[in-house]
Write a protein that binds this DNA or RNA. Structure first.
Lengths: 333, 333
DNA sequence: TGTGATGATGTTAACGCCAACATCAGGCGC
DNA sequence: GCGCCTGATGTTGGCGTTAACATCATCACA
């Protein structure tokens, strides 16, 4: 305590400018009725002293923290990370500070993380945690603050912001079918991931709609390694594989290559996400692109609008986009 | 203001427990001389009311924010992201909150980001921004708070925490040489990236030390795309390529594949970082692993020690590790 | 010329907490 | 039994800001 250096305060600025501290406050807060000369003197004093508003005092006085919590999975994956950066940026632009917490998906970690965030009196929360366990845990913390659900496959309108998973999956299957495939297998993401569930459900629905044969599902965990492992369980009759994400597709290509199976000559592959590496796998990966950054920015705009009591922006799921590269060809047989 | 809901305060808890608010404060702060019965009553009241300490008030009273700024590059790359998660985690465990800011590398963005952070009265800063411009900008903000430099190639002992780049590079070159290579080309990272510079310098030093022929350097930008582009500029006489990172190696494999050049039969490749995908490229990438998470955790421990006035931990660069996979073979000629 | 209205600024009282000091009861030595 | 020490708790005064209210010129208009 004793050795804490405190910078100049509003009083110091006020003294230097020859006004009251309240006038300084008004200048800082963009209050209107300030004589230009006065404002100028205040501004000069601020510059001279290198004064900065004390956030803690401000937040104590207003009862608002200007902080928004962000919960992200602690895996350095392209999707969540991209969204996170967009969220952080948008928050900063809107005058909020992002209090981020990367967490594992188990209930205890999430609990601890949410505790941390709410303990910091956040005004809103961006939830980017992708499993049901996390969602459940978050509900348990039910609070008065608005919560935006990102990439969670949650359906609470208008709080759920995401890319349209169903449409993305349809894009993928339609492309495969258009190329002549009928025997399509799916490597899904982990069962507890809501987005994996969504894609899987959409896949099944589409297969049934088109009256295509149903091949057994393989469950991965989003990692390239799990895609690699899936290689050994592939149905020999499958002519195409819809991979739950690009990393798994990448691993699968590796596994197939080892067995002398060529993509796309012998089997076609389509991924999901369009990670930067997807353009440079061998062969380059045909995939479904999600605009993660836009999802993040949109989420923030929803929260900011909610906090301001304004009308919420439209949060219909964003469209996914088919990126055609070279991992899909007509079936060989 | 009027519509802000404020939770219970210390006074409320004190009233309920039949003690003074100061006693509540003491219980909360783990003060020793509290009669067990009293402590219990206070704890019960806290639980009943769902009381939470007001961080702003606490921070105003103590003059400490318990916040540590983290500056990260706004690219969703494996390395910085992994370190970031480790930093965030360690900070939380140490009782600090991470105030993170993802930023582009240009001076203006960095300036704005640092302004934001210092405006939030951070007590320390983790700087993970990897270009000289950023470092320069940070120095301009020279402040009283301790700063940890991560992955920046900076050399301010003991504040610079990183993996030993020189040793990593030597590991790579020695491996190539042991496999029989002498004509080794380097695809470097962007010139303004300090780590790229470090690796490049170490590469040149090693080549000269071993009296190997110097082939022209190619400059990429860390992206797979730039590695792909480098494919067309490769020296025909090179039998091995030391890539500045794994992504560029990945792109290069793609480019070479297109020209019918097989890795490792026709040319050997070695990467740097060991991103998760490196194990599943075709062929799997031999590379140099950096323990990004450990770097992050170590950085936090340095800052925490500095803030506590304790002795700083040892920050000699962490060792890199050679991961042998299949992208390096004996030269064919 | 007086009387409000208006605009610019000053004054005061929180906000919720911590630190320093104040108090008060009980135990110990003499 | 008295004073003094010690341990447990209470009281007071900020921390730097904002909000609400107070003041005081100035000006328009009757």
């Amino acid at each position: 305590m004793a050795n804490v250096v405190r910078g100049p305060s509003m009083h110091d600025v006020a003294a230097r400018a020859g006004v009251s501290h309240q006038t300084v406050s008004r200048v800082l807060n963009g209050f209107e009725g300030i004589r230009p000369g006065t404002r100028e003197r205040v501004l000069a004093a601020i510059a001279d002293l290198g004064y900065r508003r004390n956030v803690a005092a401000r937040s104590l006085a207003t009862g608002r923290s200007q902080a928004v919590g962000v919960l992200i999975p602690n895996t350095p994956d392209f999707g969540p990370t991209s969204s996170f950066f967009a969220v952080e940026r948008a928050l900063r632009d809107a005058g909020f500070q992002a209090l981020s917490t990367a967490t594992a998906n188990d209930a205890e970690s999430v609990d601890e993380a949410l505790d941390f965030l709410f303990g910091r009196s956040i005004e809103a929360l961006v939830l980017m945690a992708p499993t049901r366990a996390v969602l459940h845990q978050a509900d348990a913390h039910a609070s008065a603050v608005p919560v935006a659900y990102l990439l969670t496959g949650d359906e609470r309108k208008p709080w759920s912001i995401s890319v349209d998973q169903g449409q993305g999956v349809r894009l993928a299957i339609e492309h495969l079918v258009a190329m002549g495939h009928t025997r399509i297998q799916h490597i899904a993401g982990p069962a507890d991931a809501t987005e994996a569930q969504l894609r899987q459900n959409a896949f099944v629905a589409e297969i049934m709609r088109l009256r295509l044969p149903r091949l057994p599902m393989i469950e991965g965990d989003w990692s390239a390694q799990s895609g690699f492992d899936a290689g050994s369980q592939l149905d020999p009759s499958a002519t195409a594989v819809f991979c739950g994400n690009d990393q798994m597709a990448l691993g699968l290509i590796h596994a197939l290559g080892l067995r002398g199976i060529d993509v796309p000559r012998d089997i076609s592959l389509i991924g999901f996400d369009d990670i930067p590496e997807a353009a440079h796998t061998l062969p380059p990966l045909t995939t479904i692109r999600q605009d993660f950054a836009r999802v993040g920015a949109l989420a923030v705009s929803v929260l900011v609008a909610a906090l301001a009591g304004e009308e919420l922006p439209d949060t219909t799921p964003l469209p996914a986009e088919l990126i055609v590269r070279e991992s899909v060809a007509a079936p060989s047989a």
